[in-house]
Write a protein that binds this DNA or RNA. Sequence first.
DNA 1: ACTAACTAGGACTAAAATAGTCCCAGTTCC
DNA 2: GGAACTGGGACTATTTTAGTCCTAGTTAGT
Lengths: 148, 148
Amino acid sequence: MLRLSKFADYGCQVMAYMARDKAVHSATEVAANLGMAAATVSKILKMLARENLVVSLLGAKGGYVLARHPLEISVAEIINAMDGPISITECSGTTSCERESFCSTRGNWQGINHIIQDALAKVTLAEMIAPKPQIVNMRAIRSRGVPA
Amino acid sequence: MLRLSKFADYGCQVMAYMARDKAVHSATEVAANLGMAAATVSKILKMLARENLVVSLLGAKGGYVLARHPLEISVAEIINAMDGPISITECSGTTSCERESFCSTRGNWQGINHIIQDALAKVTLAEMIAPKPQIVNMRAIRSRGVPA
DNA sequence: ACTAACTAGGACTAAAATAGTCCCAGTTCC
DNA sequence: GGAACTGGGACTATTTTAGTCCTAGTTAGT
């Protein structure tokens, strides 16, 4: 139900790849290693650069490097960079919709948004690339058991 | 970033409308009251009925009623009914993708999915229609302050 | 100074998902 | 029997998304 665009997914993969070392990676190189089209990876890296998640180095031998340590980059940031601001519905608060009278639900959507935002903000890139999938939220596991 | 389809949004509105009383509501009536196209509302109610969130009554004077008490219907269920199963990425576990070697991130997506799923499962329809927007998650507020 | 290897940015196209409409068949009430 | 409904699916239009390509600008090496 909650769709994440492919870009957001790609974005995470690219970031995860780059997080493995501090070397400069060109778009072509990343593309080759991830088995993705060069043009697509290039586009994704441009987007990530614009949002300051990666730093671009111009010129020959240029490329991209993570802007921060993987521990300091959250999944929420990556998704934000690729798909725009997190919001589960269109009426995100600023614009008032005509149906507002019926839409007492709005406050709750916003609450839900916050919850999801929080959940994603807590997962760092470092956790994403952990070889053995790390458990994201210990409380959730304690109360519900380990997800299948 | 997390997009909810319009259908899911509509679905919640329709459910919220129906939750106000226990009367039988026809699709046309709901449509008129919510200011939506009759055909669209009809489609939405059919979907909700197929997922047993509303009960349909055939024939003249027929229509729809909530299948359960608003307190026992979660937002997650409504969204599920409209948009299919909750899943933030495409590789939801059963199918293995070719990129699996790079995709050590998968375990974490699943964890994130669970968190979001949980968050939505905790919000009931009754809470959604509460006149004063209820706070969904007290912990979140305590730790971060009331959302703007 | 020239060339090769890069990124920046945006225009553009193709493909797929979404939203929305319509139609016909079946059910029930009066 | 006719009117008022839902059930189900086919269909179309629209919007999003994904993906490609082109031109300009930057840097390293020779």
